[in-house]
Computed example of a mutant assay.
Amino acid sequence: MNRTERFYRINNLLRGMSAVSTTALLNELEVSRATLHRDLEYMCDRMDIPIVYDHAKRGYRIASPTSDSVGHELPGLWFNSHEVHALLAFHHFLDNLEPGLLSPHIAPLKARIQALLEGKEQTLTEISARIRILPQAMRRSEPACFQLATHALLARKQMRFRYHGRGRDDITTRVISPQRLAHYRDNWYLDAWDHGKRALRTFALERIREPLELKEDTKDISEKYLDRYFSESYGIFSGRPRRKAVLRFSPQRTRWVADEIWHPQQKGWFEGDRYCLEIPYSDDRELVLDILKHGSEVEVLHPKSLRNTVFEQLLRAESQYRK
């Protein structure tokens, strides 16, 4: 039995009984008293599991949780695939934050995640070499902007800034009430109430210039309304879905797409060896890009406006190669 397996046995025994004697632990683990003490010390010091010796019960137990305590887990070997991915992704995310973004605050958190993931047989370096998380199209945000936006969001204060919109390539002055900060496809976005537009809008954080936190309190929007507005449509574009796209994929691409989640409210079905996918959307810009990446392996069946948009994009792409 290796050390990681012993940790697992110890954890199960302590959580399953009010107290476990030293003799019971030694018999279960088949190790020396010195090895048992080293294991208990490691679990306390490196994994923050509050193991104490209860003199009244003459055995070891896990201390009762306090109001501000957090959950305690074992090394990454015992996590399921979703938990391992979440921890690795979060550790990778912390490693790749721009210098100065949250540097004074994240070092203890990174150390805690590393302790959770590491065991005797694997270090975080070894895990990271074997399990890769690849960011895509990440854009750099200014640390000062991130910090100010986060502070205004949590302090519930309005912000004023100049915003460079990529679509029209223009710069406008905005006064907003921050509602949520979203990390989507490796980039940061700020969901907010735009006081000038009198509507909810989403702002790419790296396009914000000259941000300033104001003294005025934010306009409060209900969580239910925010969920409906920002989550029901496709991708980063918000708003109530006005249309439903129906896509049909080739037999070859079906083998991949049939297992993918494009949208929480999507519907899918098979037509012979082809897969059809129905997706709600309000703005087709991001959806068109995702359709185009499948090239000739997908056909837009509905609506006609989306079909025409994709067709026009394909014609323009073709013209680039006819020159």
Rank of each mutant, 00 (worst) to 15 (best):
R322V: 12
S250N: 11
V175R: 15
K110H: 06
R253K: 10
P264A: 00
Y53G: 06
N27S: 15
D217S: 13
A89I: 02
F93E: 02
Q313I: 00
Y184S: 04
Y281G: 04
R207D: 05
A204F: 05
T150H: 13
R207V: 03
L214E: 02
G239P: 02
Y184H: 13
A149E: 04
D170N: 08
I133G: 07
R156E: 15
S296A: 13
E312L: 14
L87H: 07
V70G: 11
V257D: 05
Y8A: 00
V70T: 12
A199Q: 12
L74C: 02
R58V: 07
C44S: 14
A192F: 04
E278H: 12
L287R: 12
S18T: 09
E223S: 14
T66G: 15
E286Y: 10
D290L: 11
H72G: 07
K57A: 15
G239W: 04
H85V: 11
A34T: 08
P178T: 03
S32E: 12
L153M: 10
L77R: 14
N27G: 07
F230L: 12
L77G: 09
P108N: 04
E142K: 07
D290V: 02
R112I: 01
D45P: 00
G71H: 07
R15L: 09
K215P: 00
R6Q: 06
L74D: 02
V84Q: 13
R285W: 04
E286W: 14
W78A: 00
Q252G: 00
D186L: 01
E126Q: 15
Y229C: 13
R162H: 10
D68T: 12
L124H: 07
E206W: 09
I261P: 00
T66M: 08
A149G: 15
L109G: 05
R198K: 13
V84A: 10
R139F: 04
R285E: 08
L277E: 04
P75F: 00
H263M: 01
Y53E: 04
Y60N: 09
N308C: 05
D273E: 11
R180Q: 10
L134W: 05
V298G: 01
K224S: 13
V298C: 00
R168T: 14
T254Y: 05
R201H: 10
S233D: 06
R285Q: 09
R6I: 01
T218H: 09
D68F: 03
P241D: 05
N80D: 15
R253C: 02
L87W: 02
